[in-house]
Structure formats: C-alpha cells, structure tokens
Design a protein around this nucleic acid. Structure first.
Lengths: 164, 164
DNA sequence: AGGTTATAGTTTGATATCAAACTATGTGAC
DNA sequence: GTCACATAGTTTGATATCAAACTATAACCT
C-alpha cells in the first residue's frame, strides 16, 4: 500500500477512498472548466446510484420530464431541449416505448414527425424518478447553501447559454 | 421551417441556433443537477472546438497538465486525479506515448508500476493547449463575473468533494 | 406537375467511458 | 519459502454519445 509516499495532504476519490495525496493540480486547481467537469461528473454518478435503486437509467429522468411537460413533443425538439443529438434519442425512445413508458404516434399533418406522450406507467415511473431527483437536489442544496443557490443556478444557466 | 409553431419564447441550442421555443422545462428549470450538466457539456464543447484548432483532443489537456505537474506519476494516480477509471487511461497513454508526447518507464522498485513524464514535444503541446485553456477560461470568467468567481469555484469544488 | 431544398427520424462508424475479469507482480503471515 | 491477498495495468464487453450519411416525407418555386 504505497499511497502516501513521503509527501502529504489528503484528497477523496469518487468512491470516497483516499487517493494518492500529494497530487499537484497546478493551474487546474483554479480553472472553472476542470472543476465544472469534476462537479458535474460526481453529481451525475451520485444521481446514477440513486436512480439505479429504482431500476432506471439516470438519463431517462430528463427525457421523461420533458415529455411529461410537453405532451406531443417531437423527438428532435426533445433532443434539443435535452442538449443531445437527435440520433442519440433513437435508441432511448425505442427502449421507453418498448417498456411501455412512452407512446409514440405519427402526426397526421406531417408524417415525418412523431408525437411522444407518457403512458400511465411512464407517469408512475417519472413520479418515482422525481422523488429520487428531489432527494439528490436536497443533497446538492445542502452543499451549496441556500444563500448562494439562486446565484449559482443563474451562473450555470448563463454558462450554458452564452459560452461559444 | 416550422421551428416556432404558434407558441413563443426563444432559447438557444448548443450550436447557437434557435430551438423549438415554447419548451417547458418544468422542475428541471430550477434544479442544479440538470443545469450543471448543461453548463458543463456546453463549456466542454466550446473547449473542444478550441483545442481541435490545434489538433488535440480536449481530454488530453488535463492529462498532460497532471503529468507535467507530477513527474513520474503512475497511471492509477493519474486516473484518480483526473476522475477517470484507470482502464480508460490505457488507450490514452498508449496514444500519447505513440505520438511522442509522453515517456513511460517501468519502476525499478515496483515492476508493476509505470512512471509517466512529458517529453519535450509533450511540453510544447501542453504549452499550446494551456494557451487554449486560458482563452477558454477568460470566456468563462467574463460570463461568471469576477465578483462571483471565487465563490462559484468553491461551490464546484465542494460539490465534487462532498456529494455522495 | 417536376425539381430543388428542407426537415424528421434512423443507421452507421467512431470515440470515450465504466466495470468486471484478467495477468503480473508485490507483500505479509505463517 | 509458500500461500493468501493486494495492487498496477490491460483486456473485454457494455453503454452513451456524436457526426455524417441515409430514407422518407414535406414545402416551395416555376
């Protein structure tokens, strides 16, 4: 076990174990890009664990929410709203339809387009996932602190919207 | 062109185009997890475009920086520091060694472990990538604003460290 | 109508990632 | 010394993603 090899200072890896200590991050330490990635990936992993407890993939959550809130949404609209390429959505929708969470109908007016809607089963699943997400958010909130939360969220939104 | 189909309100997709408008995000709007993902992914894409201009993959940047700052680091230490599984690093290191950016030597004391170091070519590449990253950071800084930057960074670090 | 162009969704090929199984070395107990 | 166990790195198999090519419809212009 040669983790701390003479130098000192401890740090936590994503599974909570103490990692090699003594790692120098140099400029990464102070750069937003790197820390944004670390925060997002760790938060995503945490949510992933939670949603696996109820047997759903974490990526399904935003998809189901967007369908629930926008009944009849098309796949392309959905993929944009969710920040993914439309081609990524093909297998996801296929799976959701397969498992009876989502209903998919061709539009009359434009037979290229599908309309997506949640089935009752889909709504039930979304309810459970939403409970998961709320617990997850409570965890995040307690880390961020209620004083900074609004500002923090605003900055995240601005980054997503304005970075070029 | 049937993007805005009677409803209103505009929004920007990741390539800057106006997207379907009228999408309702429901609770996602106010949730940190979702907005963290959107911010990170858009920021990463932006950096990706920049680093492609100099012909390097964006993921190489953190890797090279960590090697530069921790000469002789092992692959496992590096993967932890970078928040990736050690197995993900195998092809990356192979590529970097192949292209002469990184030098890789077996340790005497422990012949399971490799030591990684930058070659002169690797250092030069890192210098260019660092310039890219600095431009990227300036973009982020101007979005965040200097008043909130420190606090924002601190929160990101706390999320990465504390979320479970 | 016919031809051009745009759009919705799928397919295909590439990349990045993880987790678990594996190989090889090393460490410690006895 | 030898056997059980731990560790460093690789391999393998699965997943998620993108981008570009493709199919089918639709819209528009003449």
């Amino acid at each position: 076990m040669r983790t701390a090899k003479g130098r000192d200072g401890a740090r936590r890896g994503k599974n909570g174990e103490t990692i090699a200590a003594s790692i120098r991050f140099g400029p990464l330490e102070h750069w937003v890009g790197f820390n944004l990635r670390m925060a997002q990936e760790n938060a995503f992993q945490a949510f992933s664990r939670r949603s696996q407890e109820i047997g759903e993939s974490p990526g399904r959550f935003a998809t189901l929410t967007l369908i629930a809130r926008n009944p009849g949404i098309s796949q392309t609209e959905l993929s944009h709203a969710n920040g993914r390429d439309k081609s990524s959505l093909t297998p996801v929708v296929e799976d959701l339809v397969q498992r009876g969470l989502v209903e998919r109908k061709r539009m009359r007016e434009d037979r290229r387009t599908y309309r997506l809607n949640l089935t009752p089963v889909g709504k039930k699943t979304l309810t459970m996932l939403t409970r998961c997400a709320r617990r997850h958010e409570r965890g995040l909130d307690s880390i961020i602190g209620s004083r900074d939360r609004t500002r923090f969220l605003q900055i995240l939104k601005r980054i997503a919207a304005e970075i070029e």
